[in-house]
Write a protein that binds this DNA or RNA. Structure first.
Lengths: 349, 349
DNA sequence: AACGACTTTGTGAACGCTCACAATACATAA
DNA sequence: TTATGTATTGTGAGCGTTCACAAAGTCGTT
């Protein structure tokens, strides 16, 4: 267990025959260093295998090179326990990590209970101990005004994912309403006139925005709204199955169903099967989440895929740029993707 | 943007009328502090909202309160791009986070290309900059001897997940071979005699161990091995479908198939459907991964579920205990779960 | 040749904590 | 009592950086 002495900036300075500060300038890509000197220092860094200590940099008053990603504990737990999983975390990790790495940053995850009264307090604590250069708020934390206020108070720049009510912050989102409209239009173009949107929960801003998008598209196509246009599936399989069972057996049943997430889309597939309705011949189905199972479902679901990785990468990029001096504010819309697989076709008849 | 002055240990000391060091003792749960004084200090901490700075603690020569989790970049990328996703990352995050939080620790994720020649170098860099109190190596990094050697050299304790060749390190794993045996026995008990194991890749230690477990169980049941006992599906859908198509159309086709992961199990379901074989009446299928889609597949797959969250939590716990002085070594086996759903039944006939 | 203006380099202090050790308080035994 | 030990508290130094500023070097002008 021979704990070799750590290589410090002083060692590099000595080796290159300059002072600490000059080495520091090179590390931080500062200006005003003679090319020859810079090169000499870089060589010394390389040969000594020097890597600056994050803690020391932070202590010195510099940046922390840390971006904090705050996720909802409940959601993570739900996904995990239900074996439901989604690629949200996978994607976050990939998108965020990759971007951070480019700039020598690190990503720290933290789980906070959304809606908990002391969420702002919990966040303060984490911030105080980590002192990250930026914070990423994922839904539903991004909707939490108290939390955002707290971060402002602490002076930590934050990026809100999936939030698009501009208020001077940094927002990165996809056009949920537009996606819902596009999905509806895709079906309408195929000839469908009786569409049903299985909504998630009106408590989620994005869920609401999708319903609005759906309504806008059907209205524009001159389709009258009725009691079966928008139903609530509560984001889960069971509720959706219960709601759909009578509907799909009724005479004027819809010819196409849009589900707000995959569990509800799968429920639709199951109920259709139970009712002897073939998909897509007798019923078109589209999902709004595109989690893993989707591609192997029978038949493979047509779905909207959220650009999670790109959203997180964008947030990291902006936050890092902010730490480097650029102001961090503005709205950035990341394009989604409609992936047409095998559950959409012309309506029957 | 009123950046209030940070509350430091000095402020607390002043408020409580003691010295820095005494406050430090309270924070670190050190002994030898009079109950009355301890209480006074705790009150001061509470009322000032003091949270110690991790960087400063680390600088002072103490712990970093950071655990580094190293994942394979390629695997994360694959999962993400394929939309295949798995709950591996979800579970890691949940299990690790929850355990770390209990002890005031934080989890930092890092993506490193498995097998890359400079993986040890990359890891050194991250370690040097973060100085974590412990490192968690996930497969296939946990099989990388060079990496482990590097960590030893750096004096950073590490936990290897899914690795069970004891070599004085800290290993946390599940009994892959035993699970494969149990799965085989489950089928044999139902009356099956013609079983096929669709293996993943012999390059993966765990994949090998499962094949061995499968063989042990069939051998014990007096079932002779033939060319169709173990086939290679290369962990993917297409290869598996190609391999299975002729097999399931042959006369002496297997009555049960065990797939090394979900994609291969789904492929089995598809091929069976194509061949007009009903599951589970005509063919039993078991998977070895239990990713999200599984529970909604038609019919829902019987599968082995890996205790990922618990393994990571265990690793965190041991590493944190190690930072507190306890030696970190030993092997810890975490129990898996066989989740019986609807794809296993008595063999036909 | 000397001045000013800019570029490049160096110095001391500070960041907030823990370490090692010194100092004091308190208790127990002789 | 006094000595001796143990429990409790305090002090100076140091961790590896960056900051703010001071010092030295470079260059073109006059």
């Amino acid at each position: 267990m021979h704990t070799r002495k750590t290589v410090t900036i002083e060692d590099v300075a000595l080796a290159a025959g300059v002072s600490r500060q000059t080495v520091s300038r090179v590390i931080n890509q500062g200006p005003n260093v003679k090319p020859a000197v810079r090169q000499r220092i870089e060589a010394a860094i390389e040969s000594l295998g020097y890597v600056p200590s994050l803690s020391a940099r932070r202590m010195g008053g510099g940046k922390s090179f840390l971006i904090l990603a705050i996720n909802d504990r409940q959601r993570t737990l739900d996904n995990w326990q239900a074996g439901r999983g989604n690629d949200w975390v996978d994607q976050m990790l990939y998108g965020g990590m990759t971007e951070c790495e480019k700039h020598g940053y690190h990503l720290v995850f933290e789980l906070i209970d959304a809606g908990a009264a002391d969420a702002p307090r919990q966040v303060s604590r984490v911030i105080a101990s980590l002192r990250p250069d930026g914070v990423i708020l994922t839904p539903p934390h991004s909707d939490d005004a108290a939390l955002v206020a707290k971060l402002d108070e602490l002076g930590v720049p934050c990026a809100r994912i999936g939030q698009r009510e501009p208020n001077g912050h940094l927002d990165v989102y996809m056009d949920e309403g537009g996606a819902a409209s596009e999905v509806a239009r895709h079906l309408i173009d195929l000839g469908h006139r009786r569409l049903t949107f299985i909504a998630g929960s009106p408590g989620y801003g994005n869920s609401r925005r999708r319903v609005e998008g759906f309504r806008a598209a059907t209205r524009a196509a001159g389709i009258a709204e009725d009691a079966a246009s928008v139903l609530n599936g509560d984001f889960n399989f069971a509720t959706t199955a219960d709601v759909l069972m009578p509907l799909l057996q009724s005479a004027g049943r819809p010819t196409a169903i849009i589900a707000d997430n995959d569990a509800m889309a799968f429920a639709t597939l199951h109920v259709a099967d139970r009712c002897g309705i073939a998909v897509p011949q007798g019923l078109s189905v589209i999902s709004f989440e595109d989690t893993p199972g989707v591609r192997f479902s029978v038949p493979p679901l047509t779905a909207i895929r959220q650009p999670t990785a790109r959203m997180i990468a964008c947030a990291c990029e902006k936050l890092i740029a902010n730490a480097a001096g650029e102001p961090a504010a503005g709205s950035f819309e990341i394009p989604y993707e409609l992936i047409v697989r095998a559950t959409t076709a012309k309506p029957p008849g």
